[in-house]
Design a binder for these strands. Structure first.
Length: 149
DNA sequence: GCCAACGTTGGC
DNA sequence: GCCAACGTTGGC
């Protein structure tokens, strides 16, 4: 079992929306590195749900992978913001996974707090200049972050 | 709203 | 294959 962190802007899709919907198809990822991480995901993998571009960016909940990578249909939809004219149906360029709600954290664990911790010095999220929306988390980091709750 | 840090695009 | 220009992400 592996662990991941997935970012979402709460104005677009928040942890409360996931709590209500239970399952969300994680479409719209258009970054190769993030896509490749999604292709590595297995059913049951843990996900830290992260709110970005908001008042208090940080980890807000836990989810798990409930469907492994399959083609993201929005890449073929000319009316979608995520349309990619260069992607072929025989060889889809973009993938998505299904994410299922587990629980909301008792409090938001803010990015500022994660940055302060020596234990997270190598954490991909807090490395300089990182903009990945999907990224790996080690078990050590997972346990440590949830220990801050 | 600003801007640093990236990734992508396209001319050459 | 290089690299300048451009677009995007996301914290502040």
């Amino acid at each position: 079992m592996r662990y991941w962190l997935m970012k979402s802007e709460p104005d677009e899709f928040s942890i409360d929306m996931l709590a209500k919907k239970k399952v969300e198809a994680w479409n719209g990822v258009r970054n190769y590195q993030a896509r490749n991480f999604m292709r590595d995901m297995k059913v049951g993998d843990g996900v830290l749900f992260y709110h970005s571009s908001c008042d208090v960016p940080g980890v807000v909940g836990i989810a798990e992978i409930s469907a492994e990578a399959y083609p993201d249909p929005t890449q073929f939809d000319a009316r979608s913001d995520y349309y990619d004219a260069a992607s072929k149906r025989e060889e889809p360029r973009w993938s998505m996974v299904d994410v299922t709600f587990k629980r909301k954290l008792a409090r938001t664990i803010p990015l500022t707090e994660l940055k302060d911790r020596d234990e997270l010095a190598d954490f991909v999220l807090t490395r300089r200049g990182n903009r990945l929306s999907v990224l790996p988390v080690t078990k050590r980091e997972w346990d440590f972050i949830l220990g801050l709750e």
